[in-house]
Amino acid sequence: MLEPFFRWCQSTLIGQAVADSVWAFPILEAVHLLGLCLLGGALLVVDLRMLGVGLTGQPVSRLARHARPWLVAAIVVMVATGVPLFLSEAIKAYYNTSFWVKMSTLPVALGFTFGVRERVARNEGMEPGPRCKVIGAVSLALWFTVAAAGRWIGFS
């Protein structure tokens, strides 16, 4: 049902331009990876703290507040590079299980991060309780799944 839409995606100007270029895909991939590094750092600093490790001398709320703009920036970079990467090989993505795993986990991870984790982290101090730890662990698990499935798109 969605296949015609994916065919259209690949026929878009950007999709074609990236697919026809030698350098565009590798460069977009490399920047996508830089976004991953920033995302990983901005997430881990807070998630580890929520689990009670890492920067334990600081309240959770402070780290979450500082990390937030970098987290948002990382997501912007990843989407801005991820969309053209997808457009260039949309039909391959349509038949790729890893792609669907990634794309179904991603909205969950985003919703959880900004809907649940953000709210809890903002009000958490020096002694994260069990609920906070569970949220840190769920955040790590969700984003790990997104990243791992993302990497696997290229292998399957």
């Binding site: 995302l39 990983g40 750092g41 881990l44």
Partner: peptide
């Protein structure tokens, strides 16, 4: 592929923490 994926995903930890 598993070793390569581990190498790439660990970027989030190693380079991520370094960036912070």
């Amino acid at each position: 592929p598993l070793i390569e994926s581990t190498h790439v995903l660990t970027l989030g930890l190693f380079v991520g923490a370094t960036i912070m």
